[in-house]
Amino acid sequence: MAIDGEAARRIDREDLHADKRANATILIEKQRWVYKQYKFYTQQLQRAVGLIQDDDERKAVNYRYMQGYSYKETLLFFRHGLSGSTIRRKIAEGTESMANTLKLMGFFEQDAADY
């Protein structure tokens, strides 16, 4: 039981023993860094969705990806005259617009960041 507890407190597998106080400090700092990265990515994605010019494209991408609805559920939001293929095209064009916006923002260069 002591070995499991000792191994659970280690930050890296290379550590021979766990220093509870130092590892707790490192873990807290790492959690803050991860949250900061998450917050940055979320804000950039929301900004990119907001910059989609076409209203139907923006709504389709928002329902499908930002709010997490399935494709069928997204179709239900647009049953006022748009066909399934049109909605599929709106989602594809909206995601392309988002990708271009994110590329201009330098979003994809942030992936190389390490703690």
Rank of each mutant, 00 (worst) to 15 (best):
Arg58His: 05
Gln46Ile: 00
Gln53Tyr: 13
Ala112Tyr: 02
Ala112His: 06
Asp4Trp: 08
Leu75Asn: 05
Thr42Trp: 11
Glu29Cys: 07
Lys72Ile: 08
Thr86Met: 06
Ile87Glu: 00
Met105Val: 06
Leu27Ile: 12
Leu82Pro: 00
Glu6Phe: 11
Ala22Asp: 09
Ala8Phe: 12
Arg13Trp: 09
Asn100Phe: 00
Tyr115Cys: 01
Ile87Trp: 03
Val61Thr: 15
Leu51Ile: 05
Ala113Trp: 15
Ile3Phe: 15
Tyr41Lys: 10
Arg88Ser: 14
Met105Ala: 11
Phe78Glu: 05
Arg32Val: 14
Gly50Trp: 01
Glu6Gln: 15
Gln43Trp: 09
Leu102Gly: 02
Thr25Arg: 10
Ala22Ile: 06
Glu73Tyr: 12
Met66Cys: 07
Ile3Asn: 14
Thr95Phe: 01
Lys103Ser: 07
Tyr63Trp: 09
Ala7Gln: 13
Glu29Arg: 11
Gly68Cys: 11
Ile26Pro: 01
Arg21Ala: 14
Ala92Trp: 02
Arg9Gln: 15
Arg64Gly: 10
Gly84Pro: 02
Arg89Asp: 13
Met1Arg: 13
Tyr115Thr: 12
Tyr38Ile: 02
Ala22Trp: 03
Ile87Phe: 05
Asp15Trp: 15
Gln43Ile: 11
Gln37Cys: 04
Gln44Lys: 10
Asp111Lys: 10
Asp4Pro: 01
Met1Val: 15
Thr42Cys: 09
Asp56Cys: 00
Thr86Asn: 02
Lys103Tyr: 14
Asp12Asn: 09
Val49Asp: 07
Thr25Gln: 14
Arg89Met: 04
Gly68Trp: 11
Phe78Ile: 08
Arg58Trp: 06
Ala99Gln: 04
Lys20Ser: 06
Leu27Gln: 03
Ala99Gly: 03
Ile11Asp: 08
Lys72Thr: 12
Arg89Ile: 05
Lys20Phe: 15
Phe107Tyr: 12
Thr25Tyr: 07
Gln67Val: 04
Glu109Met: 10
Ile52Met: 08
Ala112Asn: 03
Gly5Glu: 09
Phe40Tyr: 11
Ile91Met: 02
Leu82Gly: 00
Leu16Asp: 11
Ala7Met: 15
Ser83Gln: 10
Thr101Gln: 05
Val34His: 04
Ala2Glu: 12
Asp55Val: 13
Arg9Lys: 15
Gly50Glu: 04
Tyr71Asp: 14
Asp12Phe: 15
Thr86Phe: 03
Glu6Trp: 10
Ala112Pro: 00
Lys39Ala: 03
Asp114Asn: 05
Val34Leu: 13
Gln43Glu: 09
Gly68Thr: 08
Asp15Ile: 05
Val61Cys: 12
Gly68Pro: 00
Thr74Glu: 06
Arg88Trp: 08
Phe40Gly: 01
